[in-house]
Simulated scan of single mutants.
Amino acid sequence: MINYQTGSLLKKYHNIPITIHFKQVKLKIKELKPYLNPKKFNTYCEACPNHSQKWTCPPNCPPFDDYAKDYSHITLYLFYTSPNQFEKAKNKDKALDAYNFIKEELQNYLREVEPSTGKMIAANSCELCKTCGLVDEKECYMPNKMRYNLVAFGFNVNQLMTDLFQHELQWATKNQTPNFVSSVGAILKK
Rank of each mutant, 00 (worst) to 15 (best):
N3R: 04
Q166P: 00
D65Q: 09
Y141W: 03
F101C: 06
N42V: 06
E46K: 15
N42Y: 00
I18C: 10
P59M: 09
D66K: 15
K90W: 13
Q107I: 01
Y4V: 04
V135R: 08
N15K: 15
E127T: 10
P115G: 13
L110I: 05
Q107P: 00
E137C: 13
E139S: 08
Y71L: 04
N60Q: 15
L9C: 05
F64A: 01
L76W: 04
T19H: 14
K103F: 14
L164F: 10
R147S: 08
H73S: 13
L188W: 12
K39F: 05
Y44F: 15
K92Y: 10
N84E: 15
L128Q: 03
D97G: 08
T19C: 10
K130C: 02
M120P: 00
T173M: 08
Y35P: 02
C48N: 11
L96Y: 13
T173Y: 12
E139W: 03
K23G: 11
K138N: 11
S82K: 09
N149A: 05
H51F: 14
R147K: 11
F64V: 04
S125E: 08
K69P: 01
Q176R: 11
A98V: 09
D136Q: 13
T43H: 08
I20H: 01
N124V: 00
W171V: 03
F41C: 11
P49A: 00
Q166R: 03
L128M: 06
Y77T: 07
F22E: 02
E31M: 01
T6W: 01
P17C: 04
I121L: 12
C61W: 02
P62I: 14
P38A: 14
N15I: 02
Q107K: 13
E104V: 00
L110E: 07
H167P: 01
A89C: 15
Y13F: 15
P59I: 09
C61G: 08
K130E: 07
K39C: 03
Q24K: 15
I20D: 00
A186C: 09
D136Y: 01
K94S: 15
K26L: 10
L78W: 05
L36F: 04
E127K: 12
P49C: 04
Q170K: 07
P17I: 07
K145V: 02
N108Y: 05
Y71W: 08
G118Q: 11
V151M: 12
N3F: 00
D70L: 07
P49K: 04
E112S: 12
N15P: 00
L164V: 11
L27E: 06
F101D: 02
F153S: 03
F86L: 06
T173C: 07
A89H: 03
G118P: 05
F101N: 00
S116M: 05
V135H: 04
K138A: 13
I29D: 12
S125Y: 01
I121V: 14
T6M: 09
A172C: 02
K88V: 04
F86C: 05
E46F: 06
F153L: 09
N60C: 12
K92I: 06
S72G: 06
I20E: 06
F41V: 02
H167V: 01
P83S: 09
Y13N: 02
A152N: 14
S182K: 12
S183E: 15
N91H: 14
T19D: 03
N179K: 09
K33M: 10
C132R: 14
N156K: 14
N124E: 07
N158H: 11
